[in-house]
Write a protein that binds this DNA or RNA. Structure first.
Length: 436
RNA sequence: GUGGCUGUAGCUCAACGGUGAGAGCAUCGCGCUGUGAACGCGAGGGUACGGGUUCGAUUCCCGUCGGUCGCCCCA
């Protein structure tokens, strides 16, 4: 019987692990320089925590189990419920705005596809306790900052933003009956992925009146400032609130001041499936062949209260290591993550091998990485090992070490090599090596 | 959960239903008892799993498992 990793999970061999660390390191760097602090919670929670947010249907989509006391528990499929729980518990003592980030390992009982596994790491950025559009804009800026950090240009990734309020106003102006609104939200959200014909078929299925369909077709593709203006004009003429348009306009203005507007654009095609979004919503897309969403978020001002917490404004986004890795691969931005070691210590003669171990341990004590060959073999073979481990320097313990107390140190990059007294070398292992 | 496509070595790929399933890269050993390369020689390692058809199956069929594309969903 030979086992493999379960469906939708990954083994992280050292090369894979290096990439994962690299991506998560970028998440750390970008979060911190944007003023976010890290939090985490348990990897499993009460199943009810997710039921409260998403209803019973969610239960089939996550991994759950009972403990020996009969408690219903679930491996976390998302971070927001945990965040809401933690914020609710201390909301009065936390300085506002709360700017927190997390990089949880999550599990979902889904059918795996590219970019979508059963176990993955997610980057969550949230700003809680701030209702101004400044918070929406800053979240989006963090995403832009991250893309720039990865070396991805506005030609390669874009962020589309919209507001749930605009969609609601538009449906109000078009007099779409309330029971048909969820289907219309879903149709608008899919519009970018569909052809014009398929979009029309979808609208036909909802059985809207012709006027309503015309309005949706007319504005469903609205994008950019012109699109935003045309919708605002239409809403004003229809005597319906334009607050959503104003929100988006403000966010775009702030993004301009942040110097990030080259990545961002209003787009009516982003609605997001989740019912709990209340205001600005946004989604990032790769503009290569895959054209998939690579992250998204929005404002969820009611959610924490609905989950039994205090009434507090919130906005955030998430993206996963899986889609980020795909994005990097697509645009040839994969980092080189070769492991290297500071020192490789070799013996010129097996009789001085104990000195090799001694020097290795002293280098390690100084915080330098150092290793050696497990086999007693020729200098040439040991050098090959040093090279294959990407050693920065090689220390050669001379065969006559007992009398000379000297070692040769070779800088592998410059090929410079010098013979030094061991004590002097250990006092300053990183001293400059000049050929003698 | 559901439908299509797919599965050969660690990776990328060969092999008409017919000898003992090959190659490149990677790994290990040797050439190479005082310096990394290149090269040469050699070794290890595989038909995802289980059935069926057949004289004979990597090849055809069924099931399971995995991957992938779409649907559902997308927190």
């Amino acid at each position: 019987m030979r086992f493999k990793s379960p469906k939708g999970t990954r083994d992280f061999y050292p090369d894979d692990m290096a990439l994962r660390r690299w991506i998560m390191g970028k998440w750390d760097d970008v979060s911190r320089r944007n003023g976010f602090v890290e939090y985490d919670g348990p990897i499993f929670e009460d199943l009810d925590l997710y039921r409260v947010k998403s209803g019973d249907e969610i239960v089939d989509q996550l991994f759950h189990f009972n403990d020996r006391g009969g408690r219903e528990l679930a491996i976390r499929p998302e971070m927001t419920p945990t965040l809401a729980r933690m914020v609710a518990a201390r909301v009065n003592s936390l300085p506002k705005p709360i700017k927190w980030y997390s990089q949880p390992r999550l599990c979902r009982a889904e059918r795996p596809q590219r970019g979508r596994l059963r176990e993955f790491f997610q980057w969550n950025i949230d700003i809680i306790g701030e209702q101004s559009e400044l918070a929406d804009a800053e979240c989006i800026f963090v995403l832009v900052d991250f893309f720039r950090e990865l070396g991805l240009s506005p030609q390669q990734v874009e962020i589309k933003l919209n507001s749930r309020e605009i969609v609601a106003s538009l449906l109000q102006a078009a007099k779409v009956p309330e029971e048909k609104q969820p289907a219309v939200y879903a149709a608008l959200d899919k519009r970018d992925k569909l052809s014009a014909v398929a979009f029309e078929e979808l609208l036909a299925k909802i059985e809207l009146e012709n006027g309503q369909k015309e309005t949706l077709k007319r504005f469903g593709e609205a994008a950019g400032l012109e699109g935003l203006n045309s919708i605002a004009t239409f809403l004003r003429e229809s005597d319906v609130s334009t607050d959503g348009c104003e929100s988006v306009r403000k966010v775009i203005e702030y993004l301009g001041a942040f110097g990030a507007s080259d990545y961002c654009q209003f787009d009516m095609g982003v609605v997001r499936g989740l019912a709990y979004y209340t205001g600005v919503v946004f989604e990032a897309f790769g503009k290569g062949g895959l054209r998939r969403a690579v992250g998204g978020g929005g404002r969820y001002d009611q959610l924490i209260e609905n989950m039994g917490g205090p009434s507090v404004a919130a906005v955030g986004f998430a993206t996963s290591d899986v889609v980020i890795a795909d994005l990097l691969a697509e645009f040839d931005k994969m980092p080189s993550t070769t492991e290297s070691i500071d020192y490789f210590v070799i013996d010129a003669d097996p009789s001085v091998f104990d000195i090799v171990l001694n020097i290795t341990s002293k280098l390690r004590e100084k915080g330098l990485s150092a290793t050696f060959s497990y086999q007693r073999q020729g200098v040439g073979k040991q050098f090959k090992q040093a090279a294959s481990r990407n050693a920065g320097r090689v220390v050669i313990v001379e065969g006559n070490f007992d009398t000379s107390k000297a070692v040769s140190v070779k800088d592998m990059a410059t090929s410079n090599q010098a013979t030094l007294m061991l004590d002097a070398f250990l006092d300053n292992p990183n001293c400059k090596i000049e050929s003698t």
